[in-house]
Design a protein around this nucleic acid. Structure first.
Lengths: 232, 232
DNA sequence: CCGGATCTTGACGCCATCCTGACGACCGTC
DNA sequence: GACGGTCGTCAGGATGGCGTCAAGATCCGG
């Protein structure tokens, strides 16, 4: 990631806790901003757009749940609620109001740091494409480029693998002949439907129990092909 | 939203807990998938791509942390860890390994539901345009090219599918013979009204309860055909 | 430069789909 | 009541897409 260090806004009215949390967070590489009241916290959140917020529910000037709801109206950063009250009703209410996590005092620093990291990790903008797929007894791993059928390794040629991969990434959907050709053989290969017939045939022989009656690699006549988990 | 209910995969070896969690989750509108071992859980996760996973750390066949790490290698859905051990070290280790949340047994159902909702709410972008139509018991999905009648799959030939699609896109409206012919068979097929009679007949036999008294695929005498949701 | 793996291309039989024709049902008109 | 028109129904023959096999052509590493 390597960019700016993340900014954490801590809103709590206990100076004791702040003196304790500040160093803990900075020592883990975060920048810290503090506020002692809800009003000040909202103001700082608005002006500094922190990457995450630590919010004590027991603030003097305003009800904690209201603060969460008010923030959630516009803020998209994670809000981790901290409270001395540990009843289930309190937790549910805060989470429903929009909090991302709920910690009951007292809590350990390391757990707090871990939960902050989880919250930051889950921010939008990080959608890793899956690197593994499975369809019945067929499994496929992108990183190792390994394909197995019922646990046993199956060797696929490059073109076979690409074809299977395109189908897997769009599992369930029908892909037209030209879509598949473009993805596997590159543009300019349209109308070469014969490739597909040959390679689908090879895939079926390597992956299907009964290549003549494919379970997963289905033909959509006149349209294209599709890979399904289970033959409806 | 508004599509399929979310699928939750619950991996736990205590039947007692499963019997307790299953109804709790389904009653909140989730679909539930269960597994009793890590191996089974990973397989189901791979093949069914749940929207979230509930994972007990104390599984018999494999260390819980390993399972979390292995899943995180490819899975992008939230993993909520459940454990009887509540020590800070355990929590930190699980969260660092990739878990999204950590609940200590015993926990309340409402808190669990609330935390699941938080996890689902935070998922990265999920809004593929649902290209679907429904008319009574007849449903039609453009992406998968699947047509169902009362839930059961119905196979349509390319021409049948195109004809149904044109009618569905103009649901309620009457389409003239020539309009339909042009859309399905291309221009230059005008006056070939016999095509329509044959194919409408086939569609009715595949989709209507009583093909002789069509509910949805209506004839407009001397004009054309129309697809309606409900026979006024 | 050789050998094996992979890709391409051709040929052929089969089968789903499509087209076409024949016939009956229904309705309005003369 | 005969007639013409439109529509629904059925089935057989034609067509084209698909699966299948195998023989070159090509690529690549040793």
């Amino acid at each position: 990631m390597g960019g700016e260090p993340e900014l954490i806004l801590v809103v709590d009215d206990e100076p004791q806790l702040l003196r304790f949390l500040g160093p803990a967070l900075t020592s883990h590489g975060y920048r810290v901003l503090t506020a002692a009241t809800a009003a000040e916290g909202e103001l700082l959140a608005l002006s500094h757009r922190p990457d995450a917020m630590l919010l004590d529910l027991g603030l003097p000037d305003r009800d904690g749940l209201e603060v969460v709801a008010a923030l959630r109206a516009w803020a998209d950063f994670p809000i981790i609620v901290v409270s001395a009250r540990g009843k289930e009703d309190d937790k549910v209410a805060a989470l429903e109001a929009g909090a991302n996590d709920y910690l009951t005092k007292p809590f350990g620093t390391r757990e707090l740091i871990a939960r902050i990291r989880v919250a930051l990790r889950n921010r939008p903008g990080t959608a890793p494409a899956p690197t593994r797929y499975a369809f019945g007894r067929i499994a496929l791993d992108l990183e190792t480029r390994a394909v197995t059928r019922g646990g046993e390794a199956v060797h696929l040629t490059p073109n076979e693998f690409r074809l299977l991969l395109v189908l897997a990434r769009n599992a369930g959907k029908v892909l037209t002949h030209n879509q598949l050709l473009k993805e596997v053989w590159g543009p300019g290969s349209a109308q070469q439907h014969h490739y597909l017939r040959v390679y689908m045939n090879q895939l079926r022989h390597k992956l299907e129990e009964d290549p003549a009656r494919p379970r997963h690699l289905q033909t959509e006549l006149g349209v294209g092909y599709r890979l399904v988990e289970d033959p409806a």
